[in-house]
Design a protein around this nucleic acid. Structure first.
Length: 290
DNA sequence: GGTCTGGGTATCT
DNA sequence: AGATACCCAGACC
């Protein structure tokens, strides 16, 4: 079926706020040597400086300049230094079945059993839909056991995003059903609707090791950050930081499982499956709200 | 930069 | 089921 026709129309006439923001972030970070002025940025986007300032600030909770400061190395290093991770509390349960409360805010999780994981999604029905989000089009995937996937797509990349996700569970049945996914999307991106009384159910589909890494990520508080090596310590395999990086990168529920809060040991952003610009955007967006 | 790294995955047997 | 080769969003020198 044609994916493009099912994508909701953009919020603003010339594209979503995120699209504007994304381009601003790209220009600010890629041309950081020039440190382009607001006037220059606006000129390149064909907007007035005041309009651009307004859109950006509404989106991020920070002015473009403050945003840039919020995602600099200095700031990331400070975040890592000051952060006395509550992670160290207790060990993560290794058990792979049964729900457990992990997220401070709003997530309960259930994970696949190893047998189910080997089936590569066989017997699983996954409903999916595309929805606008603060970070561009979001691809939401749900099962009757909860949210299983959340991906992002730049304009025109929706199909690639879907295929990237579907490859993870090649034997699952996929049904496009945005009626089923829209309430998830609405909740995920509206922090006013996060509540401990009514947690969001997520379903982690991955290997034992991956699931333990993702559980560790769920313990990192909003607006904070951790490092790949800390996660490795946390799951009791201190020498596995590189494998942790790979597992973080395979996180199927981005944003909800906050893989964007994992940084290099020195505070570098290192990588992001859905693009470093998006990682900057999410971290900055959180900084504006933390 | 180079080099070592641990675990995941694909592709054999 | 085991062996092997290759991949990676790291870490360390």
């Amino acid at each position: 079926m044609n994916v493009a026709t099912s994508i909701p129309t953009d919020i603003t006439p010339d594209g979503t706020d995120y699209d504007t923001v994304r381009r601003v972030i790209e220009m600010l970070t890629e041309d950081y040597r020039e440190q382009p002025s607001l006037e220059r940025l606006a000129g390149r986007l064909g907007q007035s400086p005041t309009q651009l300032q307004k859109v950006f600030t509404r989106w991020a909770g920070l002015s473009p300049k403050a945003f840039l400061q919020a995602v600099t190395l200095d700031r990331a290093k400070r975040l890592l230094r000051e952060e006395d991770m509550p992670l160290l509390e207790a060990s993560i349960e290794v058990g792979l079945s049964g729900p457990g409360r992990l997220h401070d805010l709003f997530v309960t999780h259930e994970a696949m059993s190893p047998g189910e994981w080997k089936a590569r999604g066989g017997g699983l029905t996954i409903r999916y839909g595309y929805h606008p989000s603060p970070f561009g089009t979001a691809l939401v995937m749900v099962t009757d056991r909860g949210l299983a996937g959340l991906a992002f797509a730049d304009p025109g990349e929706e199909r690639a995003s879907f295929e990237d996700m579907a490859r993870r569970w090649p034997n699952a049945a996929y049904i496009e059903d945005s009626a089923a996914t829209t309430r998830y999307a609405a909740r995920i991106f509206d922090s006013d609707r996060w509540s401990a009384e009514e947690p969001l159910r997520i379903f982690l589909i991955g290997s034992d090791f991956q699931v333990r890494v993702w559980q560790a990520l769920l313990k990192v508080p909003f607006g904070k950050a951790t490092t790949y090596s800390r996660i490795a310590d946390e799951i009791g395999q201190p020498s596995a930081s590189r494998a942790v990086g790979a597992a973080v990168g395979r996180n199927p529920i981005s944003f909800v499982v906050p893989c964007h809060r994992a940084l290099g040991k020195g505070g570098e952003l290192t990588g992001y499956h859905w693009g470093l610009t998006r990682k900057r955007a999410i971290l900055g967006w959180e900084a504006g709200r933390a």
